[in-house]
Each structure stands twice: as structure tokens, then as C-alpha cells.
Computed example of a mutant assay.
Amino acid sequence: MGKTNPGNFFEDFTVGQVIEHATPRTITEGDRALYGALYPTRFAIPSSAPFAASVGLSPAPVEELLAFHVAFGKTVPDVSLNAVANLGYAECRFHRPVVPGDTLSTRSEVIGLKQNSNGRTGVVYVRSTATNQRGEVALDWVRWVMVHKRDQDAPAPETVVPDLAKVVDPADLVLPEGLDFSGYDVAAAGEPHRLGDYEVGEKIDHVDGVTLTDAEHMMATRLWQNTAKVHFDVQARPDGRRLVYGGHVISLARALSFNGLANAQLVAAINGGSHAAPAYAGDTIHAWSEVLDTAETSAPGVGALRLRLVATKGRDESMTLRGDSGKYAEGVLLDLDLWALVPR
């Protein structure tokens, strides 16, 4: 038994601790194909090598969220194997496209700790960085996760809550080298809408829905080598249900957003995100988006849309995020704030 890894508990973390995560992961064309089998994604850049080349990206990158899930999965055995729930994200930037053949490795630094008042759990804040085989940063992000304590009587650490930016400044977005939308093919992309066609405050109902199954969400989570017990083991939760990995809901919502945001081709940053409620097999996921901001970029023909992407259990035609109390409305599963690159 001494050779197995039970995972870290809350009292095992210290502020400033750096963790080098195991098992670098090489991305393949098989990952691209399986991602498309799991999620109804149709964005032209990761779907079409000629389209990607026409906007300056060759070879065609995989979906940004595929890279995020792989990089995130590396952190799970060390950070969230004993988690109650992943709570949120901030300051996520995609620094360069990930292409088949790239190998991602991830390291994390603990930047905050806060024991909960019940004394049984605490929140751990980590900043994680994924690099490729050349040592170049592919993406980095902050997340915070609620983790069980091993010993309820263990003393609480000093509370440290990091000060995190509410939004990535558009000037700090990293644009892929060579990206050029000046000859953008709207017919191949699937929609004519450009940056100027979207107004701040506009809401878009993405219409379509996907019903979750245990087989698909467990397959996806294994694909990312995410070993969190709550996604696989019905004995890991008191209710005897497998919790759907929050990233699975993110990818479904992003894929569903194609209908109305087909030209939001590349995710440049995730400003923040919250998993507002758990999701389970049998739930039907719908999505809607709100335009929060627009920005110009230095790349030819490329603009940026700041979007709130919301996933709901069932379709919410009223597109309501919060109730009168200020809490998330019933049925809201995900509230994700992101920057996407679109043609001007």
C-alpha cells in the first residue's frame, strides 16, 4: 500500500509550493477526431486544414479546450484527486496554438489557501502552466478547488486569497503568429457575422441541446487522463452518482455556441468561470451567450469578442443568469467569461 498515491489533502498544500505533474502527453490527430466525436464542434480552423492555412495557421491547431483539458488533467492527481468540487477559473491565456505532435507538460504553484468554516474542507488556489516539448508556454491559468482534509483536527493554515484580475486586458491577449483574417471565407466558416455585427449586451440563444451520458463524459475525462474519483466511482459521493467533469460541460457549451458564433474561431483567454451547479448523466445541456465587450487587435482583419458563455440544464429561452436574490438562476450550470478571436 505504501507505493500507491492517495492524493493530496488540504493540509498537504503550502503557499509557494511548486508541483511538477507527471506524464507528459503528446497530442495526436486521434485526439482531434475523438474530440469531434464527443462534442458537436464545427469551428472551421480546427476542422479544416486548408481553412486554417488560409488564415495563417499551418498545421491546423486542435481546439484550445482540448489542450486545456489535457493540461488540466495533468494537475488532477496532485491537486484535486480528493476534491469536493472545482470552483472556478481566472487569468487563463492561450499563448500559442497546439498542433498534433506537440507534447504538453504541466506544473502548478500553490498561490492561496483558505480553510472552510466547517473544518472539514478547504479551498486551494493554484496557478498552472503547460509547456510544449520546446519549453514554450502553451497556456496558463488559475483555478481554485475545494479539497477534503485528511484530519479534521489539523490546524488551519494562514488564509491567503490571491488577488486575481477580473478580465484579461485585450492588450495582453496573445495572438497566434501569422494569424490573418483579411481573406476570411465566411461561406466555409458557416456564418457571415463579423465583429461589427455584434453589440455589447446582445444575447444569443444557441438553440441546440445535448443530453449527457455517463459513457461519454467518462470517456472524455479518461481521454484527458483526469483521475478525479467523483467522475468515475459511484462510491466516491454520498449520492452514489458520477459527477460530470466541469470541462466536459465547457466543451459542450463551446461546441453548441457555433450556432450564432461560428466565427468566434479561437479562444484567446478565459477571464473567469464558475461551475454554478453539478451536472449528471441524463441532464440535457443547452447554451446561450452574452456579448460583454469588443476590441480591436493588431493582427490583420482580427477582432476580439468578450463573451459570457452560459450552459444550462434544459433550454432557458429567457436567458436569465441570476435570480432576484443575486444567486445563479435555477438550471444554470456554467458561467464562463472568455475572449474569442473573430473576423473584423
Rank of each mutant, 00 (worst) to 15 (best):
A33I: 14
T41E: 07
A188V: 11
M218S: 13
W339G: 04
L336K: 14
T284S: 15
V249L: 00
H21N: 14
V124W: 05
L334Q: 06
E191Y: 14
K74V: 11
D163C: 07
W144K: 11
A269I: 08
L212C: 05
G30F: 04
N118Q: 12
N86D: 10
G101M: 07
A276S: 05
R134S: 13
E63D: 15
G190M: 05
A189K: 06
A52W: 00
T23V: 10
G119T: 05
L338W: 07
A85G: 03
V249R: 05
V210M: 12
I204M: 14
F13M: 04
A33G: 15
N226K: 03
A279P: 10
T213P: 06
N118E: 13
K327L: 14
I250F: 07
S274H: 10
M319Q: 13
A220E: 03
E29A: 13
G326T: 01
S274A: 15
L334V: 12
A171M: 13
P170K: 04
R194Y: 09
L113V: 08
I250D: 06
L139N: 06
G88S: 00
P46C: 06
T213Y: 05
I250P: 05
N226L: 01
E191P: 06
H248P: 11
I204W: 14
A165G: 05
L179D: 13
I27A: 02
D208Y: 12
L57D: 08
G36F: 15
E109T: 02
A49S: 09
F232W: 11
T211G: 10
D151P: 09
P157T: 03
Y245K: 00
V76S: 09
N132T: 08
L212N: 09
F68S: 01
H148L: 14
G314P: 11
D102E: 08
D31R: 07
Q17Y: 04
V145Y: 11
H231Y: 12
F43Y: 04
G2P: 13
E290I: 02
I111G: 00
R150C: 15
